[in-house]
């Protein structure tokens, strides 16, 4: 219960940072933090039904649930893809406009 509350707190830090910060790199930090929090939540929940790693050949037979772990492998890879593409876009915007601040970018590109 406390572990889940702390993971929720980490997710809320991520989403508050995504909205509140104006620098594009800080927003990418926030996306990575939200990804980490969700992955942590699933593995935490799946580990509550056993106490051995899901590798056959061990002594006992009460494994941890392997399904959330398999799903979270995909989630981590997709998270790093999002970070890489976001940073490539930020680099391109910096080359074109000279700043990474979203308010400045809105003003410079004429969308205000």
């Amino acid at each position: 219960m406390i572990a889940r509350a702390l993971v929720l707190c980490m997710f809320l830090i991520g989403i508050a940072g995504l909205v509140a910060k104006r620098n594009l790199v800080k927003k990418t930090f926030a996306l990575a933090i939200m990804n980490s929090a969700v992955v942590l939540l699933f593995v935490l929940e799946g580990s509550s039904i056993g106490d051995e790693a899901p590798l056959l050949g061990g002594p006992g037979a009460s494994f941890v649930d392997p399904v959330p772990q398999a799903l979270m492998l995909t989630a981590i890879v997709v998270g790093v893809c999002v970070s890489a593409l976001a940073l490539a876009l930020a680099y391109r915007l910096y080359k074109a406009y000279g700043t990474l601040d979203v308010d400045e970018l809105k003003r410079l590109s004429g969308h205000e």
Binding site: M1, A5, V7, L8, A16, V19, A20, I49, D65
Partner: peptide, 25 residues
């Protein structure tokens, strides 16, 4: 704005997350 968004997300996510529901085996 960040604090308001955090409170709204908490209101949506916390009732799903915090209760003790057993994980199916």
């Amino acid at each position: 704005a960040g604090i308001v968004v955090a409170i709204l997300s908490c209101a949506v996510v916390a009732p799903v997350l915090l209760p003790d529901v057993p994980w199916p085996e």
